[in-house]
């Protein structure tokens, strides 16, 4: 039984068109001209408990519309959704008590209060019993290493620390599913790694179902077992990382480090796409030449210190998929 079931979900917005200039603004007050925008066009997918799904797409693709509908904020135009057996927008209060949502750019904590006081307010808001609260809080303190942060006012936390507290805040009522919206945005490298590690542990060790929207492809690569890519309100791709790669391109990269920087290299059936000192990156298509024969050819002719085969970076793949959409 899937935890989240979405079928033929559509959402249209009427967007007010602003006419330029003073008279345009005045006319807009009297009569609004609106234009229908199809934010979501009959999308369907389902998510099982314990999955960690990356939901990606360019700006304006319909990501946040989907998340808002799943979270019970928005009412769709048509289609069916159940999350843990409930229709989110029909039973808002019962539904939101079972989900946790973290917005990377907006904290839900009270800015001027110590973290622990925000937690206590959330306890009252979510009607968590004192015993249950104590138990969950102790667990979260242990998992996320919050001990030293609890008495600090939120405004004095670093972005990374705040993210940890925000994730904890979203879990105090033990939700069945966690939505993370751009959780690593604006974080420094160390905090990004720590946040990813945290999400990974929540998912792998606690079995938390996580839906992650992000622009950071490293998030996807290091976290997600499954990716749903959406563009112009339709699902472009739904599968694991390998499927994502195959959908875009079959090409591979061969990185070689030459023994001698000065050597010029030329290999049939592969193109040099990047050269930096002794380090070269070649592009080849495994359908026309196998990695083994390519390597044999190169090592037979040149002095090589090191070499390895890799996939094109996920950013490039995603960019290629976005470009490959209907022109």
């Amino acid at each position: 039984m899937p935890l989240i079931q979405v079928s033929r979900l559509s959402k249209q917005y009427a967007v007010a068109e602003r006419r330029p200039g003073f008279w345009g603004a005045l006319a807009g007050l009297v009569r609004r001209r609106t234009r229908l925008v199809q934010a979501l066009d009959e999308i369907s997918f389902s998510i099982e408990p314990g999955e960690l799904v990356g939901y990606i797409g360019p700006n304006g693709a319909g990501k946040s519309t989907t998340v808002k509908i799943l979270a019970g904020i928005l009412v769709p135009t048509s289609g069916e959704v159940t999350v843990a057996g409930r229709v989110p927008w029909r039973e808002r209060i019962a539904h939101v008590a079972t989900i946790g949502v973290v917005f990377g750019q907006r904290t839900q904590l009270w800015w001027d209060l110590p973290v622990i006081e925000s937690f206590e307010l959330l306890r009252d808001i979510y009607r968590v019993s004192p015993a249950e609260y104590r138990r969950t809080l102790d667990e979260l303190i242990a998992i996320m290493d919050l001990k030293d942060l609890l008495d600090t006012p939120v405004r004095q936390l670093s972005l990374g620390q705040r993210m940890r507290c925000d994730v904890a805040a979203a879990l105090l009522h033990r939700p069945a599913v966690l939505f993370l919206d751009e959780p690593t945005i604006g974080l420094d490298a160390v905090a990004k790694l720590a946040t990813r590690e945290l999400v990974k542990r929540l998912n792998r060790e606690q079995g938390m179902t996580v839906i992650l929207t992000t622009h950071d492809m490293d998030d996807i690569e290091s976290l997600c077992t499954r990716v749903i890519m959406i563009d112009e309100g339709r699902i472009l791709l739904d599968g694991d990382l390998d499927q994502l790669r195959r959908a875009a391109t079959t090409e591979r990269r061969l990185v070689i480090i030459l023994a001698d920087e000065a050597t010029w290299i030329e290999v049939p059936k592969a193109t040099v796409i990047h050269r930096q000192g002794a380090r070269l990156t070649l592009r080849f298509d495994p359908a026309t030449v196998s990695a083994a024969s390519l390597i044999a050819d190169i090592t037979g002719r040149y002095a090589i210190r090191d070499l390895y085969v890799e996939h094109p970076p996920i950013e490039e793949i995603v960019a290629r998929l976005y470009q490959g959409r209907t022109p």
Partner: peptide
């Protein structure tokens, strides 16, 4: 304008109270 009202809708309490 800031989108904070979304957070209100995400909490299991009456919107007016929040």
């Amino acid at each position: 304008r800031s989108g904070s009202f979304d957070r209100v809708l995400l909490r299991p309490r009456s919107t007016a109270l929040q």
